[in-house]
Design a protein around this nucleic acid. Structure first.
Lengths: 234, 234
DNA sequence: CGGTAAATTGAGGGAAGTCAACCTAAGTGG
DNA sequence: CCACTTAGGTTGACTTCCCTCAATTTACCG
């Protein structure tokens, strides 16, 4: 890794990351000296449910899925973490264990901040605790909305909602409509929406046959009729 | 309200409540001067999704359900708040709106702490922010576990899990087993478990016919065979 | 181009939802 | 204290959504 990369990495870990945004330059330097960097290859497990939680994890690059697993191997993805996201806030409190499994969806780099260092940072920087709380309350809102969706909406409605979220997050306007590239396999989409591969496939096909979306290859979907898609969303 | 009650109320609002436990006596006095007290009758709506969120709510007595509603009137209860619980932490951040509906399950008393006062408290008491974060991360863990349960478990398994949670929280040991009193209607149990009245009824009857539980009246259930109930839980 | 993993499609089944009828418990008023 | 009322709960019949298993088809990689 050359000098350029080192600067880039430091920049991301302790400055771009929302929860550190209120720190002064000197404090950022200090945080940089406390963090430990780790890399994971796609498919690698970061931790499993029940492992001791001793660090706050911050995503430097790549993506991580947090999921619950059943005994028979099915998975429910609870959240997908991207650059700048953090998780493991439970590690703030002694002897807590991870309640979810975490796995790298692609090659991923993390910053690890030990429990006690994080606690001290919070004690010395009350404004930072507000940033963390803001992030946590957003995550909580997302989770609670998800709970509602799982019981109050059917698969088609959840799929439509998810497509709209993707479109707003990383959609590109084209002549035909909004193009989104799905960087998840059908299996992972199914695990995210709480359904099966086959049902995702069928529902996508249905939306296409109704002229609402166009499926191009395995990874690209164009939303042709945003209005009708939103209607399905509820 | 007599003097005795006033002392009791102050005690609960700003001292027994976990998030204030790290405050000094003087600070508690100050908090007491900032909070506003409100009462709601059973069935009263505290707020609806979309209402401006300007306060932290703390439950003094009674119970509140936080729920999501669908257009056709179905509800998914996301969480039930009891004495000492708080909600509305999203109000910390300007112009945020409530994302859920809140309704009193029984006659309920609340403490309301305005946004700016809460923020100042946090700035002046970093330890308090750790308490709030702990409560939030517990709530988050609960929500995320719930998401997994909704897709990885069937109704019978979720019902069994809920009975076990109730038993551990407020179960009373008797000769026959662990007696729990259900202070929710079947409708609310169904809304909590993400199913319907009829299915709850059928599953309870099934558990009874298998000798795992005994149903006494509408409100009392005795767990006769804890082992087998846990087995269903997974 | 094959070869392989991923995605789609089809057929059948099962868990749970819906609608409707019936039952029961807990008052309420006579 | 009993009969009536009524909301809440249970049960039954039927339906539907989605899961499962299996067979193809498609897309992507060397």
């Amino acid at each position: 890794m050359n000098r350029q990369n080192v600067i880039e990495v430091e920049h991301i870990c302790a400055s771009t990351v929302p929860i550190f945004k209120t720190l002064s330059y000197g404090e950022l330097q200090k945080v940089n000296s406390l963090i430990q960097k780790k890399e994971y290859k796609k498919g690698n497990v970061l931790f499993m449910r029940g492992d001791q939680a001793n660090h706050l994890y911050i995503v430097r690059y790549g993506r991580v899925k947090l999921y619950e697993a059943s005994k028979d191997g099915r998975q429910q993805i609870v959240r997908i973490l991207e650059r700048g996201d953090f998780f493991g806030e439970l590690s703030l409190f002694k002897d807590e264990c991870h309640l979810l499994n975490a796995e790298a969806l692609e090659d991923t780099g993390l910053c690890l901040l030990p429990r006690e260092d994080l606690k001290n940072l919070i004690r010395q920087n009350p404004e930072m605790s507000l940033s963390i709380m803001q992030a946590m309350s957003k995550r909580l809102a997302y989770s609670e909305k998800f709970i509602g969706d799982l019981t109050l909406k059917n698969v088609e409605e959840r799929l439509a909602s998810w497509l709209m979220v993707m479109a707003e997050k990383e959609g590109v306007s084209t002549l035909q409509g909004i193009r989104i590239s799905i960087n998840l396999s059908r299996q992972e989409v199914a695990n995210l929406l709480g359904t099966t591969i086959e049902t995702v496939s069928r529902k996508l096909t249905k939306l296409q046959s109704e002229g609402i979306i166009a499926i191009e290859g395995q990874k690209n979907i164009t939303i042709l009729d945003k209005k009708r898609l939103v209607l399905i969303t509820d």
